[in-house]
């Protein structure tokens, strides 16, 4: 999947004009929204006046998807630059107090041979990688390391399946978990095609990468981006023409993981070999 960046916001958040197909679609949308609203009002009682408003066009200021958000964050992983040092994994663990044996980010090493491939991520590459043994090294046709993490999808299946609204996508693109509302049912863990989510063994709640929301909100970069020594990890605002992530799109072909899942990740990969799943 290599669509131009400019298409992304339009394709996932249609701007609806009157007339033609779109008018029909809007009617259907409003109709469905109206039905849902009515149902909600009937079944779920008071306090939904806000929803009734939100369903129509008079959305509360700043809460609707219609007004373009100020920031539109994106993450870029440049596989060509990853050296597999594991600094990102360690920094993430430390920054977010991620318990052992679970990972908000991890790094995979691929060793491709004529017979097949060796893929591994020992302890998420917390300690980096040991050297490949001589036998496999001789057969290897190529080898590389790939960082993985939550893809902060435009159509996040995890958000869709959460039964209580304990995970959500913010206007600026962060997919977050509400630890005060999460049941720990793990349906989101099942729904994520990327293995990015886990049940935190200490808190017993769903957990995953937040793009270091607390850091970004304080004007910092995510911890993994901060410590990456070779610019394999970039983070920035697509609305800012000067940001590194915006620059990448000008001259590089990018990919996303598992495009067939149609989750529309906003974590983009540059230089991703086809072996990566």
């Amino acid at each position: 999947m290599n669509k131009p960046l400019e298409n992304r916001p339009q394709s996932s958040r249609p701007v609806i004009d009157a007339g033609g197909d779109d008018a029909r679609r809007e009617f259907l949308r409003n109709f469905l929204a109206g039905t849902a609203t009515a149902t909600v009002l009937m079944v779920f009682g008071p306090g939904v006046a806000a929803l009734a408003q939100g369903g129509s066009d008079s959305a509360p200021a700043g809460a609707s998807g219609k007004a373009a958000p100020k920031h539109q964050f994106a993450y870029v992983i440049n596989v060509n630059n990853c050296i597999g040092c594991g600094n990102c994994v360690r920094a993430c663990k430390r920054e977010n107090q991620v318990p052992s044996a679970v990972f908000r980010t991890w790094v995979e090493r691929y060793v491709v041979t004529g017979e097949g491939m060796y893929v591994e991520s020992p302890n998420g590459a917390l300690e980096g990688f040991s050297q490949v043994n001589a036998g496999i090294r001789e057969k290897a046709t190529k080898s590389f390391t790939v960082p993985k993490m939550c893809n902060h999808c435009e159509n996040p299946p995890c958000v869709q399946v959460c039964p209580v609204g304990a995970t959500f996508k913010t206007k600026e693109g962060f997919v977050l978990v509400d630890p005060e509302h999460c049941l720990g049912c793990a349906y989101c863990v099942q729904a994520c095609p990327y293995g990015a989510r886990f049940i935190n063994p200490v808190t017993h709640k769903s957990d995953k990468c937040t793009w270091c929301y607390h850091r970004v909100k304080n004007g910092k970069l995510p911890a993994c981006v901060t410590v990456c020594p070779n610019k394999a990890r970039l983070f920035g605002d697509l609305n800012d023409p000067e940001s590194e992530v915006t620059q990448i799109f000008k001259d590089e072909a990018w990919m996303v993981l598992k495009p067939g899942m149609h989750t529309d990740p906003t974590c983009f990969y540059v230089g991703m070999p086809r072996e990566v799943v």
Binding site: N96, E180, H214, R215
Partner: peptide, 18 residues
Amino acid sequence: YEHWYRGDAVVEAAAQPL
């Protein structure tokens, strides 16, 4: 009610210490 989440969750998430 529009996006179905606890609004304070965002504020709390931003308050995580650096």
